[in-house]
Design a binder for these strands. Sequence first.
DNA 1: CTGGGGACGGGGCCC
DNA 2: GGGGCCCCGTCCCCA
Length: 264
Amino acid sequence: MPRSFLVRKSACSRLRPNYSELHDSSPEFTFQQPYDQAHLLAAIPPPEVLNTTASLPTLIWDSLLAPQAQPVGWASLLPREIPKVVELTSLSDEDSGKGSQPPSPPSPAPSSFSSTSASSLEADGYAAFPGLGPLPKQLSGLSGAKDPRSRKAFNCKYCNKEYVRLGALKMHIRSHTLPCVCGTCGKAFSRPWLLQGHVRTHTGEKPFSCSHCNRAFADRSNLRAHLQTHSDVKKYQCKTCSRTFSRMSLLHKHEESGCSGGPR
DNA sequence: CTGGGGACGGGGCCC
DNA sequence: GGGGCCCCGTCCCCA
């Protein structure tokens, strides 16, 4: 999975970054102490506050749905006509249309994307952004769509990543705007439940326990990884020596360090 | 070097 | 269409 816009943590990542710089002065909501469930729920503002329009350019989204938003098909990969792709970067007056300024993009999209197309995105976009990794299956599968002409493409104004579904784009943009802010340390997250998981690091709450050893975890994924340690046959297996590992990262380390080749 | 834990991320699915 | 949740995954650190 590409972590295209994630900034690799620096050597001093243990230091508290000034997360407030990532936001304007009015985050969608924050968690405040104390952290018991009742307060967590109480800290969540009503839907009208949670509404993404609080920080996202509503007019932009609305305009995306407007008839002038021309459908873009992957059939446009053919070099005959270059249809316009619905692209937020092309809406130059977007910032003036809302009350709050969005945070500065982590890495401004190359100007070459200002007039790009869906086809160029597939052909060039991922090459231009190696951090994006391989073309997602959802997008790569579009070329085989029955009627690709009927599809629209929505581009992220921050990283130019393209989405077929507007909802997916909105969710993605939250990873840029980071509207959920921890009331204790100021760290920002894209989604409320991510913040909730982070809050557990402050509270020490560990709701996920191992049925084998009763060890508790704050994160379900970490419990899942832990459960692998109780298994004789791990999930990830080296193709060379058949040794199994509880985590893919361990398998990768094993392979990178040079597998001896013999089964263990 | 290896194994494991902690923290966190994104996309997809379901309601 | 939006939000919550799940799953899969990565990165970092430590024993």
